[in-house]
Design a protein around this nucleic acid. Structure first.
Lengths: 219, 219
DNA sequence: GTAATAGTGTCTGTGAGACACTATGGT
DNA sequence: ACCATAGTGTCTCACAGACACTATTAC
C-alpha cells in the first residue's frame, strides 16, 4: 500500500467578457493561502463522486453555483512541492461558459479576471492556467470549441468575433463561413433572426449531436 | 480531509515489431488479477517520486528494466469501479521505444502484443490502451513523434515506413521528404550511410533540441 | 550492362486567402 | 436615398499530391 495522497480537482473556467478572455477565480476561505484568489477546486469525495469528471462538476456547482456545458480534463499536476500539505495530485479541468450564466452571481462569490493580466496565484495555479489557455487556443484553431463561449443561439458574425477574440487574430468573413458550411455542426434556427439597427442576421445553434466538431485543417 | 485513495501510474509502451504496432504487457505477480497480462503500472511512492512523471519512469525501469526517451502523460482514469480495491486514480502515460531495447529481455519479463489483437485486459486497461493508440495515431499525423520508434539513426525511407505502419496508410516519397525538409528537426549524419545490396542511403538523427516537432499541417 | 533502391524535378488540381460584390433591413 | 451590416461570388497564388525522372550502388 501507500501513504495517503491528497487528490483534488481544479477548474479553469473561461468566459469572454468585454471582448477579453477571462477566468473565474475564488477567494479561498481556508488555509493554506486563505483569502487569496485561486482556481475553484476541492477534494475528491470517493463516496459521492462517480469519477473525477463528476467531482469537477460537483466542485463547480458547489463553489460557483453553475453547470458548464463543456468540461474537459486538461492535465494532472502532481508532486511534493505544489501544495504545502504534502504530496498531491490535482486533476485539472477546463470549462467554457457564456458570460450570461455568471451575471446571476448576486452573492459576489467569484472574480472574473483577464488571462493576460492575472495576479500571482497560489499552488501551481499559474502553471495550470497557462496550460489551459494554451489548450483552449490550440484546440480553437481546429474545432468548434469556442461555440461554448456563446449563448444557445448566435449569429455567424458573433461566432467569428468569438474565434477572433480567443485566438487573437482576425479572420476573413467569406473564408470563415465557407469552412463552417463544410463542417456542418451548426444549424440555422428557422425564422429566428438577430434584429438590430441594420439587416437582421440569421441565428444558429449547435446541432445537438455536436458538442465538439474537429476541422480537417484550421479555422 | 478525505479517505485515502489509490493513486497509480500505468504505462502504455509502444514499439514496432515486424511492421506491426505492439505494446508491452506484463504478467501480474499479485492480486488482484494475479497471473493476468496487464499494463506495466504501480503505486506512486511520494517519498521517492518527485512527481508522477518520475513515478512513471521508475515503474518502467523497475518492471521492464528500460528507460524510454519519450514518455508523455496521456490521461487520468478515475472512479470507484475500475479497481476492485476501491476508488482509484491511474495517471496513464505512453512511451515509445525502438524494438532493439526490448530484445535484451533475457528473463522474459514481458510480452509484446499487437494493438489490434489484444487479449482481455484487467481493470480498465483496454480503455487506456485504446486511448493511447488514438493519441499516438492522431499525434503522428502532425508531429515527429514516430521518430522515437526508431533507433538513434535511420534513413528517410525507414522513417517513412514507420509513419506508414503507425498510421496505416501509404505516403508519397517525394511529398514526405519535402515536408521533412521544411520542418528541419532531422540532421544528416556526415558520412554515415546505410549500406545494403543497392545504393546506400543517408543516415539521419533527431536534432538534439527536437524531442517533438509539430507540423503546420499533416504528414 | 541490369536490377533495385535513393533521391529529385515537374505538372496539375484544389482550396485558402483577399477582396469585391450583392442583399436587406433601419432611419 | 443612404448607411451599416449580412451574406455571396470570383480571382489568384501556393501547395499537396501524383508521378516521372535521374543518381548511385551491387552484382
Amino acid at each position: 500500500m501507500q501513504a495517503p495522497l491528497i487528490v483534488t480537482v481544479d477548474i479553469v473556467l473561461f468566459t469572454l467578457s468585454a471582448g477579453v478572455l477571462k477566468i473565474v477565480l475564488l477567494r479561498r476561505e481556508h488555509d493554506p493561502y486563505a483569502q487569496q484568489l485561486a482556481l475553484p477546486g476541492g477534494y475528491i469525495h470517493p463516496e459521492e463522486d462517480r469519477d473525477s469528471l463528476a467531482a469537477a462538476e460537483r466542485v463547480l456547482r458547489q463553489k460557483t453555483g453553475l453547470i458548464s456545458p463543456y468540461l474537459e480534463q486538461l492535465f494532472t499536476f502532481t508532486g511534493g512541492v505544489r501544495d504545502p500539505r504534502g504530496w498531491s495530485a490535482s486533476i485539472a479541468y477546463y470549462a467554457l461558459v457564456h458570460e450570461s450564466v455568471l451575471i446571476s452571481d448576486d452573492e459576489h462569490r467569484f472574480e472574473l479576471l483577464p488571462v493576460d493580466a492575472l495576479p500571482d496565484l497560489p499552488f501551481d495555479h499559474q502553471r495550470i492556467t497557462t496550460h489551459a489557455v494554451k489548450r483552449l487556443r490550440d484546440k480553437s484553431t481546429y474545432s468548434s470549441l469556442p461555440c461554448h463561449l456563446l449563448p444557445g443561439q448566435f449569429t455567424l458574425t458573433e461566432l467569428q468575433h468569438t474565434y477572433e477574440q480567443v485566438l487573437g487574430i482576425s479572420l476573413d468573413k467569406s473564408v470563415f463561413r465557407r469552412k463552417l458550411g463544410e463542417m456542418d455542426f451548426l444549424e440555422a434556427i428557422p425564422d429566428a433572426m438577430r434584429l438590430g439597427k441594420h439587416r437582421p442576421a440569421q441565428l444558429y445553434r449547435l446541432r445537438d449531436d455536436a458538442r465538439l466538431a474537429l476541422f480537417n485543417k484550421t479555422v
